[in-house]
């Protein structure tokens, strides 16, 4: 009992989130979605109290919480929506929120690249296939019946709980944190002093510079030149494979 009282701040939002995802899953019986949405929002708000306040930088803090909440809520709705087209559109919203988080992490180039690759290519092609496959507009039964929703949700949230618990405990062992005034039960995972990755170059002094095209390009085409070549080869092979696997026109596309 002692343990559960100490960790109720972590356990209760996890249970709420698990219940929300399970409740929102499509099922034979019509459940009122508002219950699941409210439970999920409560879980998000409770877990938000455990995240660290951004010291003195309120705009950045608010931006982070907005992007994070948008990403998590859209992801939850994406995996539970009955209509695959809406799921793909929720996934587009997840991508946009993640790009916002990339911007907060000083990665503007990655943010733009992710929008182009995901929103411009992947989601559009997947939407194209969904709409071609479901031309009749009939409600497909397989989207209404998930596989083992209760088991998968419980197992997934147990895994999430273990991950978050490790994040919490790890910092308590280490002692120091980026948060100088950490309250108990907050996530304090990393030491305050930034130690450079021993396998890498010296850190850049200006944190805004690490995402710039100059630094990124030098690292990509200097340190990782062979990896870039291999990635290009992988792209070429994937293109050839996709062309070979895709149905011929003689067989009729779709």
């Amino acid at each position: 009992m002692d343990w559960s009282k100490e960790n109720e701040l972590l356990v209760i939002p996890l249970l709420l989130g698990c219940f929300a995802v399970w409740w929102l899953m499509p099922s034979a019986k019509k459940r009122p979605r508002i219950v699941g949405v409210l439970a999920g929002l409560a879980a998000c708000i409770m877990i938000q109290g455990m995240l660290l306040p951004q010291a003195g930088d309120y705009i950045r803090s608010v931006l982070f919480f907005v992007f994070a909440a948008a990403a998590v809520i859209s992801a939850g709705l994406m995996i539970t929506d009955r209509n695959p087209v809406y799921s793909a559109l929720w996934f587009a919203l997840v991508t946009l929120s993640v790009c916002g988080l990339f911007l907060l992490n000083a990665a503007p180039f990655l943010s733009a690249a992710t929008i182009i690759v995901y929103a411009g290519a992947i989601i559009v092609t997947f939407l194209f296939v969904i709409m071609l496959a479901q031309q009749a507009g009939t409600a497909t039964s397989y989207d209404q019946q998930p596989i083992q929703p209760l088991m998968a949700t419980v197992v997934g949230f147990i895994l999430l709980g273990v991950l978050l618990f490790t994040l919490q405990e790890w910092g308590a062992i280490d002692g120091t944190s980026t948060n100088e005034h950490a309250e108990p039960r907050q996530f304090i995972a990393v030491p305050a002093e930034i130690q450079p990755n021993p396998l890498s170059q010296a850190p850049h002094d200006n944190p805004h510079e690490i995402g710039s095209l100059r630094v990124l390009g030098r690292s990509l085409f200097g340190d990782y030149l062979f990896a870039v070549e291999i990635a290009g080869t992988v792209l070429l092979i994937a293109t050839i494979g996709a062309i070979a696997i895709a149905p011929r026109r003689a067989q009729g596309t779709l």
Binding site: A68, A75, M78, I79, P146, T153, L159, L164, F187
Partner: peptide, 30 residues
């Protein structure tokens, strides 16, 4: 300026939601 732990929590949550979706959905595209 950006606190690392919060981002790790968001990343872990997105990952787990992806796992749950991967296990439960029956649509190939989803």
């Amino acid at each position: 300026a950006t606190v690392l732990e919060s981002q790790l929590v968001v990343g872990a949550t997105l990952f787990i939601l992806g796992v749950v979706g991967f296990l439960t959905r029956r649509n190939l595209i989803l």
